[in-house]
Nucleic acid binder design. Structure first.
Lengths: 341, 341
DNA sequence: TGTGATGTGAGTAACGTTTTCCACGATGTT
DNA sequence: AACATCGTGGAAAACGTTACTCACATCACA
């Protein structure tokens, strides 16, 4: 009943009457163990309830641990990605551990370093906001896949949604419903590199491009705030104050659309009769009956599965050229968008 | 530019002209290092960019890692708890790593074992559904705090919400609004131990008790499904089929209330005019304008902070008697509940 | 001038794996 | 018959840190 000493590989080896090398080989399915040896060793492992120490393993070889960094936990879209990752890794020996971040660069640096310190075999960074320099540094130390950030690198693989096209889907949808004054709420971004690489910037670009393509360049109207509920609230207030109010608002993220709905309700504007509203992400709550938000599905599950696959490939072959996977989003029309009246 | 060898404690020691013991002491703020030594060593650490290997540390001492097990990622209530944990641990050297679970016992076993294998210094288990036996086993191996599960143990500390009282708050609120036919949707539970320990069971008990206390015993009406959106949908359908429809539905969780709203909308019942609806958890979406769900706030942030505190205490002193912390919930009235018409 | 404390620092043996050899016998090839 | 090849298994050296033990000053006190 006392805190009994941990069962080690030495105990297993002795119990099976073989060397520790043999046990190690069996544990790792490594080459050089005969079938009889495998059976003998596995039996001993079973009987003793042996579990290898990740710490000791990490000192020499792998830790069979994959780290996933999330910018936050409240956006269910990230849960979709994670599901894809864990599902793909389900059959393997790898264990996924996550760390949620504070959405700032120092926090991201702290977390990535913590993962490196813990000798993780690979990391998946979801929508990181760190400088490109930092990402490269991480990727040169540990196999890395970056999800939800555009731009290519020789050091890490990427998986992204085609945000440019996704924004186009929304504009197309609204134009087909007869809207012309279609406004957009974006996440303000100054940094020139991020301006190219972050999804929010791509969405804004896609919006502009689609508006031009429909000959609606003169109606382009962007409120620049943040991707938060508060940002949506403020953005909608700005747009309502325009001389010519928009008939449709394309919020860059579902959570932004929630703020928009709050502001519109407060202003006595009804949705979708007076103004149509669309979001982006297809987060869980977008589907709830009372909300029923038109939005864009990013196929988070597939993004996660692809990220996991790329990471395993890279762990297996460190110097493989990097890959960029871009997935196509789909429009999910619901009840917050309607034909113009 | 080549994968340069990692900087170790030996490099730091040589660079500072001291022993590795000294460096180790400084890293851990351990006793026995003079101020001059501290300065000298810290300078060397800085210059060389040294970071200790958690794997090597784990082999002898601590890993400075705390594991948090979550039953799922989509319930934002868990994010609140996590915020509390990370905030409390912010100033320390500990790093929090999470693992999301599949909400079944094999999955929980896999995750807890993975955390033990990785020599984590402590674990926080949030709303675990595993057998008590397994929890005890984990707690005897590694310092453990269990959050959101009632029942005491000599091996682990607990932090819970007073679910019994919380359910009472909801019933009180509805009774004050004039309701008498107040129905409840619970998460079905057979296992006798869990029946006592799980929050859902406590909520159902609290509901029954409060109804009795108000002299409404005859109106007690429970639909037994699951704590999911689907469960709420089915539960509401059952309740609508009663000879005497309830005038208020208390769903055991916010996500259940979402399903209830779907079913009511589908049946042409308006909320709160025809039927009032209340949830539990005060999840993020409950506050969204179009939903505006009356619910109960569990003070997740405080739960997390308390759990972290207890865990640090237990890590410091392993054989301290265990503590049970119970936090009081508060009712958040919103627009889905109204006086009976 | 001894005699303990006390404070500071170093040497060294773990910790539990994996990896790199090497040895040995069996098998195939000239 | 000589020689290479292959399959199997073991011995022992890492890996980077911490815990334990001990040595050596310094200082206070009788």
């Amino acid at each position: 009943m006392q805190p009994s000493r941990r069962v080690t590989i030495v105990d297993v080896a002795r119990h099976a009457g073989v060397s520790t090398t043999a046990v190690s080989k069996v544990m790792r399915n490594a080459y050089g163990a005969s079938p009889e040896m495998q059976i003998k060793v596995r039996a001993a492992i079973e009987e003793l309830g042996y579990r290898p120490s990740a710490a000791a393993r990490g000192l020499r070889g792998q830790t069979y641990t994959i780290g996933v960094m999330l910018p936050e936990m409240r956006n269910p879209f990230f849960a979709d990605i994670l599901d894809g990752v864990t599902e793909h890794l389900g059959g393997t020996d790898y264990q996924v551990l996550m760390a949620a971040c504070c959405n700032d660069e120092p926090g991201e640096i702290r977390i990535t370093e913590a993962m490196i310190d813990r000798s993780m075999d690979g990391v998946i960074l979801i929508a990181p906001i760190s400088s490109r320099r930092h990402l490269q540094k991480v990727a040169r130390t540990v196999p890395t896949v970056v999800v939800g950030r555009h731009g290519t690198s020789p050091d890490y693989d990427t998986v992204t949604d085609d945000d440019f096209a996704g924004a186009g889907l929304v504009v197309d949808h609204l134009v087909a419903l007869g809207h012309r004054r279609i406004a957009h709420i974006e996440h303000a971004e100054r940094n020139p590199v991020r301006l190219k690489e972050m999804p929010n910037a791509q969405r804004a670009d896609g919006y502009r491009h689609a508006m031009q393509a429909h000959g609606l360049g003169e109606f382009i109207d962007i409120a620049s705030t943040t991707y938060t509920q508060q940002g949506g609230y403020l953005g909608a207030q700005q747009l309502l104050a325009r001389a010519q109010r928009p008939t449709a608002i394309f919020a860059g993220a579902d959570i932004v659309a929630m703020g928009v709905l709050d502001a519109l309700t407060e202003a006595g504007v009804s949705v979708p009769e007076d103004i149509s509203v669309a979001g982006y992400d297809d987060t869980m709550f977008a589907a709830f009956g009372p909300i029923s938000l038109t939005t864009v599905d990013q196929a988070g599950h597939q993004m996660g599965a692809n990220a996991a696959r790329l990471l395993l490939d890279r762990i297996a072959e460190r110097n493989r050229p990097t890959a960029q996977i871009k997935l196509s989003p789909t429009l999910i029309p619901r009840r917050t968008t309607a034909p113009i009246s």
